[in-house]
């Protein structure tokens, strides 16, 4: 189910402003890749090009190609809606649909895909997704209550359940723990470890320890200054990035000696 991602010479624009320049990388299937780098260097922007969410912002566009198992996401005739059904996303701030129950939230994506689903199938998928997101025990008695009534950490895990209920090939996570307490953060990290058995995972994080703990590969992004585009500086195995990076800027950033 998981797929290999290959990015070639990708540039991201917001209107005239070039936010990310010339990124090329390969992401292996069934692995966790972490994106690190200072604020504003284009991690979120780049991440959102991997499921064509970048272009929903008015004026935003992309140059270059992103291949998932050899198929270019930006090829002619590719429907972004289909791309997003295969590449799931978890946002920085938990965003369950406030007008839907917990159950409907989890099944929202699946209901878009499949015309009709038998009730028993739906129940099974609901439980499986919530169990994989470590949320089942906490919500099994209030599945019909609104998703917005959960705590922040529970809401984020609900969003993860919603994303994996789609059974995507790739899961993108943009600082999924930034609004969470340490315990929920650990729960999400454990979850990432479990999920990588099945999915290809890309995670943006500001937390170095988190990157070191969860990821197999780490990519470091940086900017030359305000107004300059963000660039991929170095990408390698997490072990190497955190012990003997090739580039000085990476080492400075990791050891906290930047600016």
């Amino acid at each position: 189910m998981s797929k290999r991602i290959e990015v070639n010479d990708l540039n991201c624009f917001y209107g005239k402003f070039k936010a990310v320049e010339d990124v090329s990388m390969t992401i292996q299937p069934r692995s966790v890749t972490a994106f690190i780098g200072p604020s504003g260097c284009g991690k979120s922007t780049f991440l959102r090009t991997l499921n064509r969410m970048h272009e929903v912002i008015p004026g935003a566009y992309v140059e270059g190609e992103v291949l998932i198992d050899g198929n270019n996401l930006y090829g002619p005739g590719v429907d972004p809606v289909n791309v997003r059904r295969q590449v799931g996303m978890v946002f920085q701030r938990p965003n369950p649909f406030p007008t839907m129950s917990i159950k409907d939230n989890v099944l929202a994506g699946y209901r878009l895909n499949k015309e009709r689903m038998k009730n028993s199938e739906a129940e099974a998928l609901l439980e499986k997704s919530l169990r994989s997101a470590n949320l089942w025990e906490e919500v099994k008695n209030r599945l019909d209550k609104p998703g917005s009534g959960l705590s922040g950490g529970q809401q984020q895990r609900l969003c993860i359940a919603r994303a994996i209920a789609m059974q995507p090939e790739v899961l993108l996570m943009d600082e999924p723990c930034s609004a969470l307490d340490p315990i929920s953060t650990l729960a999400v990290e454990d979850l990432v470890q479990e999920l990588k058995e099945t999915y290809t995972i890309v995670i943006v994080t500001h937390n170095m320890q988190q990157a070191a703990r969860v990821s197999d590969e780490t990519a470091f992004f940086n900017i030359a200054g305000t107004g300059a585009p963000g660039k991929l500086i170095e990408m390698s195995s997490t072990e190497k990035i955190f012990s003997t990076p090739d580039i000085k800027a990476t080492e400075d950033y990791i050891t906290g000696r930047f600016g």
Binding site: N51, M53, V56, V81, N82, R84, R85, G88, M89, F91, R93, N95, P96, F97, P98, T99, M100, A108, G109, L112, N113, C159, R162, A163, M166
Partner: peptide, 25 residues
């Protein structure tokens, strides 16, 4: 925007996004 993007990221078309996020809101 957060909820509209949530719907789009699940693979909703624009009309589906409106049904999931905009009209209920």
């Amino acid at each position: 925007v957060l909820h509209q993007e949530a719907a789009l990221a699940l693979g909703a078309t624009r009309w589906e996004m409106i049904k999931m996020a905009v009209l209920p809101f």
